[in-house]
Design a binder for these strands. Structure first.
Lengths: 220, 220
DNA sequence: TAGCTATTGTGGACGTTGTACACAAGAGGA
DNA sequence: TCCTCTTGTGTACAACGTCCACAATAGCTA
């Protein structure tokens, strides 16, 4: 490429591509997130991410081992957003009721946050869960005796859900998976499945019915 | 396949490539199904299907408009298999109880069939549901007044589920979606999600708990 | 201040995929 | 027997993920 070894006017240097990007890793991740937002996991294509970062395709390999690796990073970000959505719904709850009685309300809030996020960001939601099957680390191990569930991956998400009332409502092991399944299933069917044609109002009604069922079913 | 219309020695024709394949459409679909079985929807690659059918890549385009079109056909087949699995579970039920009381048992049987199929054929199950989001026809329309649900797509599957007891247990519109969501969510989390590391026994327990919740929740 | 070196982006290339276009082989009716 | 419609072939192209060798730069070291 260009030599420009010695005596050289400085102002022509930044004219073209600044070679060092600054934070390409972040830029690629952001591009990946944008792509996933718009078109789900299959839309996050490595070359397009580098294109958006204004860099040559192979540059990506200095920061991600593969396209799959980039997808993993996008997934992590999407899961964090999902967790944030649930936290937000939880935070919006009035805090005056006593913990014993509003346990169900908190479970419901978390579920609503989950569904809301899935419908607001279907691309990210799909990116969060549509990943190669064996790509999930060994989470979901049996819950230790103290009742806490060490779900490292969803971390804030599921742990918060569990803390937030589920355990208060139903201490049997597996109860959180049951509740999670119900909410997750509806989210999936709504955004990428046979229920995707359901109008929003009807979807809301189904959501209410489902959360109601979860609350009822928890008490056991 | 070949006619071998008239005076023809029968043994010399198949010597070379038989040009006309006979039923290439079926062969390609079968290959697609096999690929999906082994590796899920992303593994059904058009060129590999033609390779297995012993034919040049472009031949596929005489029978499928695109790779996506082939995937659609695979999905239809997978959904049929899923429906068959539910029917099988239903058929294995003792038929002596009166319809009113065993409605829940039938719902449970259908749910068990659903989960069983998902875990036995994760590739096909994923192929059945992991499809471009806007690729689902306009199913899931509001149920007509007679209480039947016109889910053309899942056809036998959901209709059967509805007939089989769900409507007897809970006539409110949307009830079938709630039940479906719960079962579908667990299936999804188990085979391609964060619960994929759960050991089978634990998965069974969660499944039992979930179906129990569905039954309880249905009665309203 | 000059030079060395590890980091990070570039250039070019390869194999694979989905897909388009023109052509050839064969089936079935005229 | 020929004609024509169907169906498979051949060739080609763009895009993708990924590999390799090389160039530019930052930051340390002397």
């Amino acid at each position: 490429m260009r030599e420009m070894t010695k005596g050289e006017t400085m102002d022509e240097r930044p004219a073209r591509g600044t070679y060092r990007h600054g934070d390409l890793q972040r830029a690629l991740l952001d591009a990946g997130i944008a792509l996933a937002r718009a078109g789900g996991p299959e839309a996050v294509v490595l070359r397009e991410a580098t294109r958006r970062a204004g860099v040559v395709p192979n540059a990506a390999y200095r920061h991600f081992a593969s396209r799959h690796d980039l997808l993993r990073a996008v997934r992590a970000s999407a899961l964090a957003s999902l967790a944030a959505a649930m936290e937000a719904e939880l935070a919006a709850l009035p805090a005056d009721a006593d913990p014993a009685t509003d346990a169900r309300g908190r479970v419901r809030a978390v579920g609503i946050g989950y569904l809301r996020f899935a419908r607001a960001e279907p691309g990210l939601f799909r990116a969060a869960f549509t990943i190669s099957p064996d790509d999930w680390p060994a989470v979901a191990v049996p819950r230790p005796e103290d009742g806490r569930h060490p779900c490292q991956l969803l971390g804030a998400a599921l742990d918060r859900m569990v803390e937030a009332g589920l355990l208060a409502a139903d201490r049997r092991p597996g109860a959180e998976f049951v509740a999670w399944s119900a909410v997750h299933g509806l989210a999936t069917l709504l955004i990428a499945g046979p229920l995707s044609r359901l109008d929003p109002a009807a979807a809301d009604r189904v959501g209410d019915r489902l959360l109601e069922m979860v609350e009822k079913g928890l008490a056991g």
